[in-house]
Amino acid sequence: MNEQQSTTTTPPVIHARGLTRRYGDTAVVDGIDLDIIRGEVFGLLGPNGAGKTTTILMMLGLTEISSGEISVLGFNPAREPLKVKRRVGYLPDAVGFYDQLTATENLAYTGKLMGLPRAERAGRIEQALRRVGLIDVASKRVATFSRGMRQRLGLAEIIMKRAEIAILDEPTSGLDPQATQEFLGLIGELKAEGITVLLSSHMLDQVQRICDRVALFKAGHIVLMGAVPELAVKVLGAGFVVEVEAEGPGIARRLAMIPGVTQVETLSADRFRMTAERDVRPDAARAVVAVDGSLRRLSVDEPSLDTIYARYFQDHSAGGVRHAA
């Protein structure tokens, strides 16, 4: 899958080759190759238990590496964990805080562990809490915080750390839709500041919008990696699905003649679904007009990761290679 990597001259901030973690005989992470480029939002996606968290823990030097190599910002996390952990922020899955302490006190504790100088600490904490919108509850005990607030407090910790890489494990799981949107917005702000964001999730559709590139995990392997549209072309054979509702003679034939269209399905007498490599809506409209038909609706479905994932495993289980979960 290396051919999909963007051609950049800067070295990747996270670089893994043949990374493997075995517990006894079972490999939880099995020989994955990964290059994450500075400033991108990279998604580790896949079902629970596919090896996403273990991969993240190996990047932080929090679990042993059975074989293979990994470097984070040029450091080996197994040998120089402090250098890595000083530059990388981590928001664990279902992050916890000390309930009896306030939000500020919790951040002050980790701030001290990070070795932030006393003079800077208070300012950075306030700034971080303001960024995530928790400044009003800064002196409330964390015991009263909702799941979404805890998640944002975890993000405030990464902002306070001024991390170069933010690693977020399942940041949106268990959040209500509004909290999810707010959180995804905060991730977008991190990206805008040039922070590399690595996030893992099992909610493919939720995170696909903010990820520049994704890696789909399956039983310890990365089965697909790249930008979502690229993957769509590769797996679905097309990136776009356009639905046309129109009346007129020979529309189906006309639509099929548009360059870039790979398939036209006739759903009913006046409804057609086209799969195409690009957004062919203007061409479709012209085609309908050309036969003097009446165009009623023209819609495009962006390729969804769910579809890509499902289709990929459908194909492979049909071939008897793997079985889908």
Partner: peptide, 14 residues
């Protein structure tokens, strides 16, 4: 159980 361990150990300490 408070799920603070991984967050604390992700700070630059052993």
């Amino acid at each position: 159980n408070r799920r603070t361990l991984s967050r604390i150990l992700a700070q630059p300490i052993y």
